[in-house]
Protein backbone atom coordinates (compact mmCIF):
# COMPACT_ATOMS: atom_id res chain seq x y z
CA UNK A 1 0.00 0.00 0.00
CA UNK A 2 1.35 3.39 -1.02
CA UNK A 3 0.22 6.24 1.23
CA UNK A 4 1.75 9.06 -0.76
CA UNK A 5 -0.92 10.20 -3.22
CA UNK A 6 1.56 11.28 -5.89
CA UNK A 7 3.40 7.98 -5.83
CA UNK A 8 0.11 6.12 -5.79
CA UNK A 9 -1.00 7.96 -8.92
CA UNK A 10 2.31 7.25 -10.66
CA UNK A 11 2.31 3.58 -9.71
CA UNK A 12 -1.17 3.15 -11.21
CA UNK A 13 -0.50 5.35 -14.23
CA UNK A 14 2.68 3.61 -15.34
CA UNK A 15 1.10 0.27 -16.32
CA UNK A 16 -2.13 1.89 -17.52
CA UNK A 17 -0.26 4.29 -19.83
CA UNK A 18 1.96 1.65 -21.37
CA UNK A 19 -0.50 1.04 -24.19
CA UNK A 20 -0.33 4.73 -25.11
CA UNK A 21 3.46 4.60 -24.85
CA UNK A 22 3.63 1.73 -27.33
CA UNK A 23 1.07 3.20 -29.69
CA UNK A 24 2.66 6.65 -29.65
CA UNK A 25 6.11 5.15 -30.16
CA UNK A 26 4.79 3.15 -33.10
CA UNK A 27 3.18 6.23 -34.58
CA UNK A 28 6.39 8.19 -34.10
CA UNK A 29 8.50 5.53 -35.81
CA UNK A 30 6.10 5.66 -38.76
CA UNK A 31 5.94 9.44 -38.89
CA UNK A 32 9.71 9.75 -38.71
CA UNK A 33 9.86 8.34 -42.27
CA UNK A 34 7.12 10.68 -43.43
CA UNK A 35 4.18 8.29 -43.20
CA UNK A 36 1.17 9.26 -41.10
CA UNK A 37 -0.65 6.21 -39.77
CA UNK A 38 -3.93 7.27 -38.19
CA UNK A 39 -4.89 3.62 -37.79
CA UNK A 40 -3.57 3.30 -34.22
CA UNK A 41 -6.98 2.26 -32.82
CA UNK A 42 -7.18 -0.57 -35.31
CA UNK A 43 -3.62 -1.71 -34.71
CA UNK A 44 -4.16 -1.83 -30.94
CA UNK A 45 -7.40 -3.75 -31.47
CA UNK A 46 -5.83 -6.32 -33.81
CA UNK A 47 -2.77 -6.77 -31.60
CA UNK A 48 -5.06 -7.30 -28.61
CA UNK A 49 -7.52 -9.68 -30.19
CA UNK A 50 -4.81 -11.94 -31.64
CA UNK A 51 -3.05 -12.09 -28.28
CA UNK A 52 -6.39 -13.16 -26.78
CA UNK A 53 -7.02 -15.70 -29.53
CA UNK A 54 -3.54 -17.12 -28.98
CA UNK A 55 -4.11 -17.30 -25.22
CA UNK A 56 -7.59 -18.85 -25.43
CA UNK A 57 -8.23 -20.72 -28.66
CA UNK A 58 -4.66 -21.76 -29.46
CA UNK A 59 -3.79 -22.42 -25.83
CA UNK A 60 -0.44 -20.61 -25.99
CA UNK A 61 0.79 -20.61 -22.40
CA UNK A 62 3.72 -18.22 -22.71
CA UNK A 63 2.57 -14.58 -22.50
CA UNK A 64 5.62 -13.57 -24.53
CA UNK A 65 4.52 -15.83 -27.36
CA UNK A 66 0.96 -14.43 -27.18
CA UNK A 67 2.48 -10.97 -27.32
CA UNK A 68 4.52 -11.97 -30.36
CA UNK A 69 1.43 -13.26 -32.14
CA UNK A 70 -0.40 -10.00 -31.46
CA UNK A 71 2.58 -8.01 -32.71
CA UNK A 72 2.75 -10.14 -35.85
CA UNK A 73 -0.95 -9.64 -36.59
CA UNK A 74 -0.61 -5.87 -36.23
CA UNK A 75 2.45 -5.99 -38.49
CA UNK A 76 0.39 -7.72 -41.18
CA UNK A 77 -2.24 -4.98 -40.97
CA UNK A 78 0.58 -2.44 -41.02
CA UNK A 79 2.01 -4.10 -44.13
CA UNK A 80 -1.32 -3.71 -45.92
CA UNK A 81 -1.35 -0.05 -44.98
CA UNK A 82 2.30 0.38 -45.98
CA UNK A 83 1.74 -1.14 -49.41
CA UNK A 84 -1.31 1.06 -49.94
CA UNK A 85 0.33 4.33 -48.99
CA UNK A 86 3.96 3.76 -49.98
CA UNK A 87 3.70 1.65 -53.13
CA UNK A 88 0.29 2.78 -54.36
CA UNK A 89 0.63 6.24 -52.80
CA UNK A 90 -2.89 6.30 -51.43
CA UNK A 91 -3.91 9.29 -49.37
CA UNK A 92 -2.44 8.56 -45.95
CA UNK A 93 -5.24 10.17 -43.98
CA UNK A 94 -7.98 8.19 -45.68
CA UNK A 95 -6.04 4.93 -45.65
CA UNK A 96 -5.21 5.51 -41.99
CA UNK A 97 -8.87 6.04 -41.13
CA UNK A 98 -9.67 2.86 -43.02
CA UNK A 99 -7.15 0.98 -40.86
CA UNK A 100 -8.57 2.57 -37.70
CA UNK A 101 -12.21 1.75 -38.42
CA UNK A 102 -11.55 -1.52 -40.20
CA UNK A 103 -9.10 -2.72 -37.58
CA UNK A 104 -11.50 -2.03 -34.72
CA UNK A 105 -14.37 -3.66 -36.60
CA UNK A 106 -12.32 -6.70 -37.52
CA UNK A 107 -11.02 -7.03 -33.96
CA UNK A 108 -14.55 -6.86 -32.56
CA UNK A 109 -15.67 -9.43 -35.10
CA UNK A 110 -12.86 -11.79 -34.17
CA UNK A 111 -13.51 -11.12 -30.50
CA UNK A 112 -17.18 -12.16 -30.64
CA UNK A 113 -17.88 -14.71 -27.92
CA UNK A 114 -14.63 -13.87 -26.19
CA UNK A 115 -16.01 -11.06 -24.01
CA UNK A 116 -14.73 -11.39 -20.48
CA UNK A 117 -13.14 -14.74 -21.28
CA UNK A 118 -10.38 -15.63 -18.84
CA UNK A 119 -7.00 -17.11 -19.72
CA UNK A 120 -3.92 -18.10 -17.73
CA UNK A 121 -1.26 -16.56 -20.00
CA UNK A 122 -0.52 -13.35 -18.21
CA UNK A 123 2.61 -11.47 -17.31
CA UNK A 124 3.74 -11.24 -13.72
CA UNK A 125 5.24 -8.20 -12.09
CA UNK A 126 8.99 -8.00 -11.79
CA UNK A 127 11.21 -6.01 -9.52
CA UNK A 128 14.55 -5.38 -11.27
CA UNK A 129 17.58 -5.65 -8.97
CA UNK A 130 15.24 -5.82 -5.98
CA UNK A 131 14.47 -2.09 -6.32
CA UNK A 132 10.77 -2.78 -5.82
CA UNK A 133 11.47 -3.31 -2.15
CA UNK A 134 13.04 0.12 -1.75
CA UNK A 135 10.23 1.85 0.09
CA UNK A 136 7.28 3.58 -1.50
CA UNK A 137 9.33 5.07 -4.32
CA UNK A 138 10.68 1.66 -5.20
CA UNK A 139 7.20 0.22 -5.09
CA UNK A 140 5.83 2.95 -7.35
CA UNK A 141 8.53 2.79 -9.99
CA UNK A 142 10.02 -0.68 -9.83
CA UNK A 143 7.23 -3.15 -9.33
CA UNK A 144 5.85 -3.57 -12.83
CA UNK A 145 5.72 -6.04 -15.67
CA UNK A 146 8.99 -6.58 -17.55
CA UNK A 147 7.35 -5.29 -20.69
CA UNK A 148 6.65 -1.98 -18.99
CA UNK A 149 10.39 -1.37 -18.62
CA UNK A 150 10.83 -2.30 -22.27
CA UNK A 151 8.24 0.26 -23.30
CA UNK A 152 9.49 3.06 -21.05
CA UNK A 153 13.25 2.54 -21.23
CA UNK A 154 14.56 -0.04 -23.70
CA UNK A 155 12.58 0.93 -26.81
CA UNK A 156 13.02 4.70 -26.51
CA UNK A 157 16.72 4.32 -25.70
CA UNK A 158 17.21 2.13 -28.75
CA UNK A 159 15.30 4.55 -30.96
CA UNK A 160 17.15 7.57 -29.60
CA UNK A 161 20.45 5.88 -30.34
CA UNK A 162 19.26 4.87 -33.80
CA UNK A 163 17.96 8.29 -34.78
CA UNK A 164 20.59 10.52 -33.30
CA UNK A 165 23.76 8.45 -33.08
CA UNK A 166 23.86 6.36 -36.28
CA UNK A 167 24.20 7.12 -39.97
CA UNK A 168 21.26 4.88 -40.73
CA UNK A 169 19.17 6.92 -38.32
CA UNK A 170 20.17 10.11 -40.05
CA UNK A 171 19.03 8.59 -43.33
CA UNK A 172 15.73 7.62 -41.68
CA UNK A 173 15.18 11.20 -40.55
CA UNK A 174 16.16 12.46 -43.99
CA UNK A 175 13.51 10.25 -45.58
CA UNK A 176 10.93 11.88 -43.33
CA UNK A 177 12.19 15.42 -43.76
CA UNK A 178 12.96 15.52 -47.44
CA UNK A 179 12.57 12.26 -49.33
CA UNK A 180 13.76 13.76 -52.61
CA UNK A 181 17.06 14.83 -51.09
CA UNK A 182 17.46 11.46 -49.42
CA UNK A 183 16.72 9.75 -52.70
CA UNK A 184 19.29 11.92 -54.44
CA UNK A 185 22.05 10.70 -52.15
CA UNK A 186 21.08 7.10 -52.72
CA UNK A 187 18.82 6.28 -49.79
CA UNK A 188 16.13 3.75 -50.64
CA UNK A 189 13.14 5.93 -49.77
CA UNK A 190 10.36 3.46 -50.57
CA UNK A 191 12.18 0.61 -48.87
CA UNK A 192 12.70 2.64 -45.70
CA UNK A 193 9.13 3.87 -45.65
CA UNK A 194 7.79 0.35 -46.09
CA UNK A 195 9.97 -1.15 -43.39
CA UNK A 196 9.44 1.55 -40.77
CA UNK A 197 5.71 1.73 -41.39
CA UNK A 198 5.46 -2.00 -40.72
CA UNK A 199 7.77 -1.74 -37.70
CA UNK A 200 5.70 1.14 -36.31
CA UNK A 201 2.50 -0.86 -36.73
CA UNK A 202 4.10 -3.80 -34.93
CA UNK A 203 5.07 -1.59 -31.99
CA UNK A 204 1.54 -0.17 -31.82
CA UNK A 205 0.11 -3.68 -31.93
CA UNK A 206 2.40 -4.58 -29.05
CA UNK A 207 0.46 -2.02 -27.01
CA UNK A 208 -2.78 -3.83 -27.70
CA UNK A 209 -1.34 -7.23 -26.87
CA UNK A 210 0.18 -5.82 -23.68
CA UNK A 211 -3.21 -4.39 -22.73
CA UNK A 212 -5.04 -7.73 -22.74
CA UNK A 213 -2.15 -9.71 -21.26
CA UNK A 214 -1.63 -7.42 -18.29
CA UNK A 215 -4.00 -4.54 -17.55
CA UNK A 216 -7.44 -5.82 -18.54
CA UNK A 217 -6.68 -9.55 -18.28
CA UNK A 218 -9.61 -10.26 -20.63
CA UNK A 219 -11.00 -9.24 -24.00
CA UNK A 220 -13.73 -6.66 -24.47
CA UNK A 221 -14.98 -4.94 -27.64
CA UNK A 222 -13.48 -1.60 -28.69
CA UNK A 223 -10.55 -2.37 -26.43
CA UNK A 224 -8.53 0.72 -27.39
CA UNK A 225 -11.31 3.12 -26.37
CA UNK A 226 -9.72 6.15 -28.01
CA UNK A 227 -6.21 5.58 -26.65
CA UNK A 228 -4.90 5.25 -30.20
CA UNK A 229 -6.11 8.76 -30.98
CA UNK A 230 -4.52 10.06 -27.81
CA UNK A 231 -1.26 8.42 -28.89
CA UNK A 232 -1.33 10.43 -32.12
CA UNK A 233 -1.69 13.62 -30.11
CA UNK A 234 1.11 12.55 -27.78
CA UNK A 235 3.48 12.27 -30.75
CA UNK A 236 2.83 15.88 -31.70
CA UNK A 237 3.19 16.98 -28.09
CA UNK A 238 6.44 15.06 -27.87
CA UNK A 239 7.81 16.60 -31.05
CA UNK A 240 8.76 13.19 -32.44
CA UNK A 241 11.34 12.56 -29.69
CA UNK A 242 11.39 9.02 -28.19
CA UNK A 243 11.68 9.92 -24.50
CA UNK A 244 9.28 12.83 -24.74
CA UNK A 245 6.76 10.41 -26.21
CA UNK A 246 7.08 8.28 -23.10
CA UNK A 247 6.63 11.25 -20.81
CA UNK A 248 3.64 12.56 -22.76
CA UNK A 249 1.91 9.21 -22.61
CA UNK A 250 2.59 8.92 -18.88
CA UNK A 251 1.18 12.39 -18.31
CA UNK A 252 -2.05 11.36 -20.00
CA UNK A 253 -2.35 8.22 -17.87
CA UNK A 254 -1.48 10.14 -14.72
CA UNK A 255 -4.38 12.53 -15.38
CA UNK A 256 -6.82 9.60 -15.42
CA UNK A 257 -5.30 8.17 -12.26
CA UNK A 258 -5.45 11.57 -10.60
CA UNK A 259 -9.20 11.54 -11.23
CA UNK A 260 -9.67 8.11 -9.67
CA UNK A 261 -7.28 8.66 -6.77
CA UNK A 262 -9.07 11.91 -5.95
CA UNK A 263 -12.33 9.99 -5.82
CA UNK A 264 -10.94 7.01 -3.90
CA UNK A 265 -9.51 9.34 -1.27
CA UNK A 266 -12.65 11.42 -1.17
CA UNK A 267 -10.97 14.68 -2.19
CA UNK A 268 -13.30 17.54 -2.90
CA UNK A 269 -13.16 21.27 -3.26
CA UNK A 270 -15.04 23.78 -1.12
CA UNK A 271 -17.03 24.97 -4.12
CA UNK A 272 -17.39 21.65 -5.87
CA UNK A 273 -18.78 18.30 -4.72
CA UNK A 274 -17.09 14.97 -5.27
CA UNK A 275 -19.16 14.00 -8.33
CA UNK A 276 -18.66 17.35 -10.04
CA UNK A 277 -14.97 17.17 -9.32
CA UNK A 278 -14.91 13.68 -10.82
CA UNK A 279 -16.47 14.93 -14.02
CA UNK A 280 -14.08 17.84 -14.16
CA UNK A 281 -11.08 15.62 -13.59
CA UNK A 282 -12.25 13.07 -16.15
CA UNK A 283 -12.04 15.91 -18.67
CA UNK A 284 -8.45 16.69 -17.70
CA UNK A 285 -6.59 14.10 -19.81
CA UNK A 286 -8.21 15.39 -22.97
CA UNK A 287 -7.84 19.00 -21.94
CA UNK A 288 -4.15 18.43 -21.27
CA UNK A 289 -3.83 16.69 -24.64
CA UNK A 290 -5.44 19.66 -26.34
CA UNK A 291 -3.18 22.13 -24.57
CA UNK A 292 -0.18 19.99 -25.39
CA UNK A 293 -1.01 20.06 -29.09
CA UNK A 294 -1.70 23.77 -29.12
CA UNK A 295 1.42 24.73 -27.19
CA UNK A 296 3.91 24.34 -30.08
CA UNK A 297 1.61 26.29 -32.38
CA UNK A 298 1.20 29.01 -29.76
CA UNK A 299 4.93 29.21 -29.23
CA UNK A 300 5.47 29.52 -32.94
CA UNK A 301 3.19 32.55 -33.07
CA UNK A 302 5.23 34.22 -30.38
CA UNK A 303 8.31 33.69 -32.46
CA UNK A 304 9.50 30.95 -30.12
CA UNK A 305 9.44 28.25 -32.74
CA UNK A 306 12.08 25.76 -31.85
CA UNK A 307 13.65 23.02 -33.90
CA UNK A 308 12.13 20.43 -31.63
CA UNK A 309 8.51 21.25 -32.31
CA UNK A 310 8.40 20.88 -36.06
CA UNK A 311 6.87 17.87 -37.77
CA UNK A 312 8.95 15.92 -40.29
CA UNK A 313 8.85 17.93 -43.50
CA UNK A 314 7.68 15.08 -45.66
CA UNK A 315 4.94 13.90 -43.30
CA UNK A 316 1.80 12.55 -44.99
CA UNK A 317 3.07 13.42 -48.47
CA UNK A 318 3.37 10.46 -50.84
CA UNK A 319 6.74 10.36 -52.55
CA UNK A 320 6.77 10.34 -56.36
CA UNK A 321 10.28 10.11 -57.67
CA UNK A 322 9.06 11.40 -61.04
CA UNK A 323 7.88 14.67 -59.46
CA UNK A 324 11.16 15.31 -57.76
Amino acid sequence: MIDNAFLSIISVAIPASTVVVFSATGAMVTERVGVLNLGQEGLIGIGAVYAVIAATEWGVASPWLCLGIGVLAAAVLGAIFAVAVVIFRANQVLAGLAIALGGVGLANQLGTNRNGSLYPSKFTEESPFGLGGAGQIGEAFFRHYAIVYIAYLVVPAALWFLYFRTRHGMNVRAVGENPAAADAVGVNVLGMRLWYTILGAAISGCGGAYLVLTVTRSWSPDIARGRGWVALAVVIFAAWRPFRVVLGALLFGAMISLDFTAQARGWDLPFMGASDLAFLLSMLPYLVTLIAILTPAGLARLGLRTRGTIAPGGLAIPYFREER
Binding site: M1, I2, V12, A13, A16, T216, G253, A264
Partner: peptide, 17 residues
Protein backbone atom coordinates in the same frame (compact mmCIF):
# COMPACT_ATOMS: atom_id res chain seq x y z
CA UNK B 1 -17.33 -0.82 -20.16
CA UNK B 2 -13.72 0.32 -20.26
CA UNK B 3 -11.45 -2.30 -18.74
CA UNK B 4 -8.44 0.00 -18.64
CA UNK B 5 -10.31 2.62 -16.64
CA UNK B 6 -11.81 -0.07 -14.43
CA UNK B 7 -8.29 -1.37 -13.78
CA UNK B 8 -7.03 2.09 -12.89
CA UNK B 9 -10.01 2.67 -10.60
CA UNK B 10 -9.49 -0.70 -8.93
CA UNK B 11 -5.80 0.01 -8.38
CA UNK B 12 -6.58 3.45 -6.97
CA UNK B 13 -9.07 1.96 -4.50
CA UNK B 14 -6.71 -0.84 -3.51
CA UNK B 15 -3.91 1.67 -3.01
CA UNK B 16 -6.27 3.45 -0.65
CA UNK B 17 -6.61 0.24 1.36
Amino acid sequence: FDPVKAAQAAEALLADG
